[in-house]
Design a protein around this nucleic acid. Structure first.
Length: 598
RNA sequence: GGGGUUGUAGCUCAGUACGGUUAGAGCGCCGGCCUGUCACGUCGGAGGUCGCGAGUUCAAGUCUCGUCAGCCCCGCCA
């Protein structure tokens, strides 16, 4: 037979998953992958797949003998163009478990477009396959309905974002990928400059400074869906390159951006999931989040809260706690409904976990048969016991876990971790989408290694103007104008009102222990810009990958990225990163200095 | 940098607590039979450096040490 090629006559007239009653009796052309074949000796069925679904094709030797004979050679994942007439399946042979299951295509002719080798894993059973292999053969993994769905959801998120922000007057502006390294923050990915020997670009950790300068440049409202790069260790929700929805606005305060971003989320969830989010989202200060939930990104689906046991133990007979409290230490509790049933062994296991998190110990109170039990009860008089039960709101059958530490953040953090672990183990995480804003983060925190103050958010975040006076006297207690959007215990976005006053900016660089020359050298262009007529401005950035992950119900952002990297930041498909030739390095004025193997 | 976990046929796994014939199963692959299946059925066949390297032992998939890789977590991620 003459060799035939794919041409206009073989282009599909309908997607596989869309074959239905309206095509009955008409000839259609389908393009897709052979997902499964059932050769009954005479009649042959194949399932043809594309991203819309699956349809059954019938090769009947009585109807098309020559075509049927050729079909015997077909194998899984061959790419075919198939022509045939759509008809209702004979009564009793319908398959309601697939969308097209009441119809089939009686093939009249087909063209093999591309055969496939025997594949390294079974396409029909790919959910269980080792991620190693899935990443190496990502093009096969991508043919799974799950990943197809995720990529399409991700596209719809990006599309909704562009439509929403464009409608609200935002301008999408591209900022450079080859930019300048700044020493603050995450480790940079560096790119050597061939024409500037010894000099390096950095890939952006975020377009932060550029978007602020766009505000100085009169752009008023900017956004960008943009790749960002951070050379830090990976996690299920962290990749070295990831995508931000980056947003900045002029002449606004916190309330403006927060309420607009709530509307954005409301629209997005309506569009993607058909969910109606109630507005406004609750606001919570960072301090309250830490004290009540032991986290700066509280998961409100878990109802348990932490309590401050200062008043219970301040005058108690418990010497160690009393001393701790007089020295500004902290005793915190986590009420644990049903915890009275906890066995000695289970508690020991809990205590071990608390210690692994850095706790000196873990104490427990249990309410059994109306009385408070536990090793510390003997230190508490009747009054203090009453206060404990009232403060912690524990009743019959409940328990209270107690951690003491000289640092309240540590005590709360440990209980916050236990709170989540216990809730997950005991299925106490409620369904739903629980958003909130966390506000008033501290501006600065102490870096003990470098022995200096560093920015919690970034060095362009505006301090709360009321706290400006504390910048030199008590830097740790300066509140910032930063805010995070938190969803179900995930930080999905974070931003701030920026510093638009060059003097405040310089003051902050001072607090971060930059010399004036340092500041000028590194950020002089920003300071110059700020001195050139700068509107008050602020913004936010959302992690597109994390949002997509949550909206797809996934556990890892790898499942919403087409080509993710492994925990060692490698691409198993392409083999990146790889070695380069000496000639390339020489051009870039770079030499290798490999670590010696001990 | 640290802790945990996994690694046996192309894929998913069993076998390892207590070392002992020729390392098994299902799926996939190859071949035969089979005309309404849909995880088609059925008969047969090929397919193994038990991640890699040392060590203990008469004997190692199994025990010891090291190492590599995937995943989860801590540190880190303004």
């Amino acid at each position: 037979m003459e060799r035939r090629f794919f041409d206009a006559t073989w282009k599909r007239t309908v997607y596989c998953g869309e074959v239905g009653s309206r095509h009955e009796g008409t000839e259609v052309c389908l393009n897709g992958w052979l997902r499964r074949r059932r050769d009954l000796g005479g009649i042959i069925f194949i399932e043809l797949w594309d991203h819309t679904g699956i349809v059954q094709i019938v090769f009947n030797p009585e109807e098309q003998e020559a075509i049927h004979d050729l079909a015997g050679e077909l194998r899984n994942e061959y790419v075919l163009a198939v022509r045939g007439v759509v008809r209702a399946r004979p009564a009793g042979t319908e398959n309601p478990s697939i969308g097209t299951g009441f119809h089939e295509v009686a093939v009249s002719d087909f063209l093999l477009l591309s055969p496939s080798r025997a594949l390294p894993f079974d396409m029909n059973d790919v959910d269980k396959v080792d991620e190693n292999l899935r990443l190496r053969y990502r093009y096969l993994d991508l043919r799974r309905p799950r990943l197809q769905h995720n990529l399409r959801v991700r596209h719809r998120i990006a599309l909704f974002t562009r439509n929403f922000l464009s409608r609200e007057g935002f301008l999408e502006v591209e900022t450079p990928m080859l930019t300048k390294s700044t020493p603050e923050g995450a480790r940079d990915y560096l790119v050597p400059s061939r024409v500037n020997p010894g000099m390096f670009y950095a890939l952006p950790q975020s377009p932060q400074i550029f978007k602020q300068i766009l505000m100085v440049g009169g752009c008023d409202r900017y956004y960008q869906i943009v790749k960002c790069f951070r050379d830090e260790d990976l996690r299920a929700d962290r990749q070295p390159e990831f995508t931000q929805i980056d947003i900045e606005m002029s002449f606004i305060t916190e309330e403006d951006i927060q309420s607009l971003m709530e509307q954005f989320m409301q629209g997005l969830f309506r569009d993607i999931l058909g969910e109606e989010l109630p507005l406004p989202f609750p606001r919570m200060t960072w301090r309250e989040a830490m004290e009540s939930y032991g986290s700066d990104k509280p998961d409100l689906r878990v109802s348990a809260k932490l309590v401050d046991l200062h008043d219970v133990f301040a005058d108690s007979g418990m010497e160690a706690f009393r001393t701790l409290l007089t020295e500004k230490g902290s005793v915190r509790g986590l009420s644990f409904a049903g915890g009275a049933a906890l066995s000695r062994k289970e508690f020991a296991e809990l205590e071990a976990r608390a210690k692994a998190l850095g706790a000196a110990g873990l104490a427990v109170f249990q309410v059994k048969e109306g009385t408070l039990k536990g090793p510390l009860v003997k230190f508490l008089d009747e009054e203090a016991q009453k206060r404990l039960r009232a403060t912690a709101q524990i009743g019959e059958g409940d328990a209270l876990l107690v951690v003491a530490d000289k640092d309240w953040r540590k005590a709360c953090g440990i209980l916050g971790t236990l709170r989540l672990e216990l809730a997950r183990e005991r299925n106490l995480v409620e369904e739903g989408w629980r958003f909130l804003w966390v506000t008033e983060f501290p501006l600065l925190e102490r870096d003990e290694e470098e022995n200096r103050w560093v920015a919690v958010h970034h060095p362009f975040t505006s301090p709360n103007m009321e706290d400006l006076g504390l910048l030199e006297s008590d830097p740790g207690n300066v509140r910032s104008r930063a805010y995070d959007m938190v969803l179900n215990g995930n930080e999905v976005g974070g931003g701030s009102i920026r510093i638009h006053d060059p003097e405040v900016q310089q003051k902050l660089f001072g607090a971060l222990a930059f010399t004036p020359q340092d500041a000028e050298e590194r950020f002089g262009f920003l300071l110059d810009a700020l001195r050139s007529g700068t509107p008050p401005h602020g913004g936010i950035a959302f992690g597109l990958d994390r949002l997509a992950m949550l909206l797809c119900g996934g556990r890892s952002i790898r499942d919403v990225m087409a080509f993710p990297k492994t925990q060692k930041a490698q691409c198993l498909m392409s083999g990146a990163p790889g070695l380069v030739e000496d000639r390339q390095l020489a051009e870039l004025h770079v030499t290798r200095a490999l670590p010696s193997k001990e």
